[in-house]
Each structure stands twice: as structure tokens, then as C-alpha cells.
Design a protein around this nucleic acid. Structure first.
Length: 151
DNA sequence: GCCAACGTTGGC
DNA sequence: GCCAACGTTGGC
């Protein structure tokens, strides 16, 4: 079992969007970074736990807990010219971009990024490192336990 | 809106 | 294969 942090822009998909559809899975579409794609393709397992993080918004931070609900499969938005995630170089027979389904475990208390930065225990956390832009980052078991205990 | 950081592109 | 230019992310 591994742990991850996955960023979503709430204007796109928010924790409340997931909470409004209990039990349903959502495809984690739109990842267009190879490192993040490779985490989904090569490392994630069904049942892995996920910190659902709101980014690119007024108050960024952790909004809930989710879990990986599928293996990797092609992200349909890469083939859709109407989508902002369209990739003209992607081929149906050789998709570039993959995704996994995620499902909400629970909406939690909101833990702002500023609070996360205040915990000495989270100093090493990948998402808090300077210049980090990866939308999917691994979380250590210690960090997972620390955060869930403080939610 | 600004800007630091980083990834990608493309000319050579 | 190098690297400058450019685009994007994302916090502030």
C-alpha cells in the first residue's frame, strides 16, 4: 500500500464534486506531465490512499481522503479537440496520457497549505519543497499518518 | 498580476 | 546533444 498526494483545481474537480457522487469513481484526467503519468502507470495500485489537494485556488490545501480505484488506462481527453487537454500528437493506437480512477473515501477538515508548512514533521514533504509543481507526489507512511492524525 | 521554478521545444 | 526561448504551474 502506497500513499499519494494528488492536486486538483477545485474549479475543475473539487472535493464537493466527489462528495456529491458518493461511491462513484472519477477519472483523474488532464495530467500532462510525464513524471506524474508514470506514477499512475507504473507505481499506483488499486487501494492506494490519496490526499486530495486543492491547488490553484484562493486557499490551497488538503480537502479530503481518496483512494485509487482502477489500474491505468488511456485519458480520453487527449483525443478530444474540444478539450483543453487535447494533445494533437497523441495516437489512439499509442496513447501518450494515462489516468487512473479515484474515489472519495471522505471529505475531511480542510488543512491549508500554510498549516502544513507549520509542522516540523512535514518539512521533508515533497509537495512542500521549493519549486515543486508535480500534480502527483508520493507521500511517506509517516507523512500520511501525521496528516490524517491532524485532520 | 507577479514571479520563481521547472518542463518542453526546436534550432543548431 | 546542447541550450536558449518559451510556456505552464501555482503560491503569494
Amino acid at each position: 500500500m502506497q500513499f499519494w498526494l494528488m492536486k486538483s483545481e477545485p474549479d475543475d474537480v473539487s472535493i464537493d464534486d466527489l462528495a456529491a457522487r458518493p461511491g462513484q469513481t472519477v477519472p483523474w484526467y488532464g495530467v500532462r506531465n510525464y513524471q506524474a503519468r508514470n506514477f499512475m502507470r507504473d507505481a499506483m495500485q488499486i487501494g492506494d490512499r490519496v490526499l486530495f489537494y486543492h491547488s490553484g485556488c484562493e486557499v490551497p490545501g488538503i480537502a479530503g481522503l481518496a483512494e485509487v480505484a482502477s489500474g491505468p488506462y488511456p485519458d480520453a481527453s487527449q483525443f478530444d479537440p474540444a478539450s483543453p487537454y487535447f494533445d494533437a500528437k497523441a495516437r489512439q493506437e499509442e496513447p501518450r496520457w494515462l489516468l487512473v480512477d479515484v474515489k472519495l473515501v471522505k471529505k475531511t477538515r480542510f488543512m491549508p497549505l500554510t498549516e502544513m508548512r507549520g509542522y516540523a514533521g512535514l518539512e521533508e514533504m515533497r509537495v512542500l519543497q521549493r519549486g515543486n509543481r508535480l500534480s502527483i507526489t508520493p507521500v511517506t507512511p509517516f507523512e500520511w499518518q501525521f496528516i490524517t492524525e491532524h485532520l
